[in-house]
Amino acid sequence: MKKFSEADIGEEFGPIEIQIGDDAIRRIKAVDDENFWLNEGTETKSVIDPAILVQYSNILKTTKYSLEGLVHVNQKIRIHKAVRVGDKFTMTGKVTSKYTSRTGKIFLEFECIFMDEGDNVVLESKETYLLKL
């Protein structure tokens, strides 16, 4: 499988549908020490951290590429709507930039949009990776 570092600027990924279920609950519980988002037995329709959606952008990338050699150095999110357990989303992604810094390091930017079932934007994500070629 080709490495993500070989992706072209403008290359698009998805759409892929995801649902906030057991997988997301497991991840939220791993960072929810004080049960702010989830209380035992009350997971159904609980509001959870929308930032957890960013985790799922790897599903988009790995439809075409391996993630070998990527170092996640920067993350931007813009939250538009709250996210609840059980919600379904469609995610799409795009490589928006690839550039070399003055020190010779190569960076790649990947933007991802998560839409709800009503076609409303829920979360926008921009990930920056240092490429270890």
């Binding site: 702010f36 929308p50 930032a51 993350q75 813009r78 939250i79 709507k81 709250a82 996210v83």
Partner: peptide
């Protein structure tokens, strides 16, 4: 994000922006 949700409530969850390195 949890810290901001605790501080700003649902408002963080509908319009918040975060950039980190």
């Amino acid at each position: 994000s949890e810290m901001l949700a605790r501080t700003f409530g649902g408002k963080w969850l509908e319009g918040g922006e975060l950039t980190v390195s």
